[in-house]
């Protein structure tokens, strides 16, 4: 499978990376994240090729594509989590509100506070529910108990979890169900009031009902946050996102308004992928 994908790209496939005019409905959106010529390699393995795209502010953008296409890697570029991998080299620029997070002198810690992340597998810390939610605030230096409590209630409410856990905030986070744990992780990410929320296949380990809850949550959160979600589930991309970006072999093949892309893809490759002919 991997070998097949790494075969030299068919010269017949033209990969368009120019930006597409947004549809009128989405036109009012400002640019949340501006990527220009982002390239990333792990050692000799070139994973992302010249990615340029504008992510709309306070909209949901879905990144789709077959396994190994670089969509998760791209997501991790947006909060510099790839820095944790020694061999990773990134070039190009990723601007958030005009500030290049790969520019010299960037405070990575500050970037990660502005760009929250929810992982594929929910990863609540082995601490109480309360301690999980306020973790980010505490490491940011907030000590005031009432402020922490208020923030916990607010974030848990936004993550649609408050009613389920308000009577047992001191219980271990690991006592929650899988779906609740994932919503707790979302609450934990939004407690530090980021501008952007990155989600890396947040529902892949969840049952359909828990998935539905998270999707509703994503829908409600886009009022406040710019959301970028990686998903393998095309229906999910169609349901939750305003725009979709299709990746293949580390290149951005097509990027546009979700409803257009699913009904009328511009590229043959996109069409093949969303109709299930490969991937």
């Amino acid at each position: 499978m991997t070998r097949e994908l790494q075969a030299p790209a068919d010269p017949g496939i033209r990969i368009r990376t120019e930006l597409r005019p947004a549809e009128p409905a989405a036109a009012s959106a400002a640019i949340g994240i501006e990527l220009r010529d982002v390239n990333l390699s792990y050692g000799d393995n070139h994973v992302l090729h010249d990615i340029s795209m504008d992510v709309d502010e306070k909209r949901v953008t879905a990144l789709i594509g077959p396994s190994g296409c670089g969509k998760s890697t791209l997501l991790r570029c947006l909060n510099r989590m790839n820095d944790l991998i020694e061999s990773a080299r990134t070039t190009g620029s990723v601007k958030i509100k005009g500030q290049d997070i790969y520019g010299p002198g960037t405070d990575v810690i500050a970037v990660r506070r502005r760009v929250g992340m929810v992982f594929q597998k929910s990863n609540p810390f082995p601490k109480s529910i309360f301690d999980n939610v306020v973790y980010g605030l505490r490491i940011g230096g907030v000590r005031d108990r009432t402020a922490l409590e208020a923030a916990a209630e607010k974030s848990l409410s936004l993550a649609a979890l408050w009613d389920e856990v308000k009577d047992r905030l001191q219980a271990s986070a690991l006592s929650l169900s899988g779906g609740q744990q994932q919503r707790l992780c979302i609450a934990r990410a939004i407690a530090v009031e980021p501008e952007i929320l990155l989600m890396d296949e947040p529902c892949s380990a969840l049952d359909p009902i828990a998935t539905l809850k998270i999707e509703e949550l994503i829908y409600s959160l886009k009022e406040r946050y710019t959301i970028v979600i990686v998903t393998h589930n095309l229906q999910q991309a169609a349901r939750v996102s305003d725009k979709t970006a299709f990746f293949w072999l580390g290149r951005l093949v097509e990027y546009g308004v979700t409803s257009d892309m699913f009904t009328n893809p511009r590229e043959k490759l996109t069409e093949d992928y969303i109709t299930g002919r490969f991937g």
């Binding site: 989590m81 944790l84 810690i109 990660r112 992340m117 992982f119 990863n123 980010g136």
Partner: peptide, 8 residues
């Protein structure tokens, strides 16, 4: 990872 992603 979770901790680092929160800016630790």
């Amino acid at each position: 990872e979770g901790s680092l992603a929160l800016g630790a």
